[in-house]
């Protein structure tokens, strides 16, 4: 006699859930601990840091991305609702919107990364930090005995300034190019993970989060495309699968809700 695995679609009466729902919540529990480990590292490093930058990242872009992800959460849950109502076309539209949001998020994120890679910081022997843009090519900078740097404006941490910088380089203020001999420099680099523990945490946490977004997009893309065929044979099963994928997607958004203030705002 062939026995089927029970409760793949219907809920087990005493636990009130179908298998995959228990599975995804368990997986999310482990994800909580994964990001918990990273947050604990953030706390440890921040407590021990002599200097922790404030509003270094572009807050308007981060806020925009927060809006994008919140929107994607709503479209996600609407896609599931449509599927529960057996409105297939509507389901495809809402899920498509979710996918678009995910792609937009990644696009904005990569713009932010690129910005940071073109931004430089110098720590002088006396501990003072100067941030700005190189007025020479990176290859020159590596060879030369002096660095030519156009320092950031005084108000570069302000919301208005950052908002302007999204749409082009803001008008330069009083600053003029500094020439710093390398003998005065303790440490310099563009804003890559190695520049400081702050940027290391930023890139690692958002990078891992970005990988989760990509993973979520692959799964949701599958249920938008080939996976949606299940609708014809077992719509309830498809609704369950979309619910489970949606739980993952909501969780990834939830992580962002914490990443945004911890990395961008303070």
């Amino acid at each position: 006699m062939e026995m089927e695995i029970p409760y793949t679609v219907t809920a087990r009466p005493d636990t009130g859930a179908y298998n995959a729902k228990i599975g995804i919540w368990l997986f999310l529990a482990s994800e909580v601990m994964l990001f918990g480990g990273l947050f604990s590292a953030y706390i440890f490093l921040r407590l021990g840091a002599t200097h922790w930058p404030h509003h270094l990242l572009n807050v308007p872009m981060g806020l925009f991305n927060t809006f994008v992800l919140i929107t994607s959460s709503i479209t996600m849950v609407m896609a599931w609702t449509a599927l529960k109502m057996r409105q297939f076309q509507s389901y495809r539209r809402w899920l498509g919107a979710t996918l678009v949001c995910g792609v937009v998020f990644l696009g904005v994120k990569s713009m932010e990364y690129k910005d940071k890679f073109h931004h430089y910081g110098v720590i002088l022997n006396n501990g003072q930090e100067i941030t700005g843009h190189l007025e020479m090519s990176p290859a020159e900078a590596r060879k030369s005995q002096t660095l030519r740097i156009l320092p950031d404006a005084e108000d570069s941490g302000s919301f208005g300034h950052q908002l302007q910088s999204v749409f082009g380089r803001p008008a330069a203020g009083e600053e003029k190019v500094l020439e710093i001999p390398k003998s005065d420099i303790q440490w310099w680099s563009n804003f890559t993970p190695r520049y400081s523990t702050y940027l290391a945490t930023y890139f690692t946490m958002t990078g891992l989060h970005g990988l989760h977004i990509i993973g979520g997009l692959v799964v949701l893309g599958f249920f938008w495309g080939p996976g949606a065929k299940l609708y014809r044979t077992n719509p309830e099963h498809l609704a369950n699968r979309v619910e489970v994928a949606g739980l993952f997607w909501h969780f990834v958004d939830l992580v962002w809700i914490f990443l945004f203030p911890t990395l961008y705002l303070f």
């Binding site: 636990t15 009130g16 859930a17 729902k21 228990i22 919540w25 368990l26 999310l28 529990a29």
Partner: peptide, 8 residues
């Protein structure tokens, strides 16, 4: 249901 609540 409470199973999920307990897990979380």
């Amino acid at each position: 249901n409470k199973t999920v609540h307990h897990l979380m």
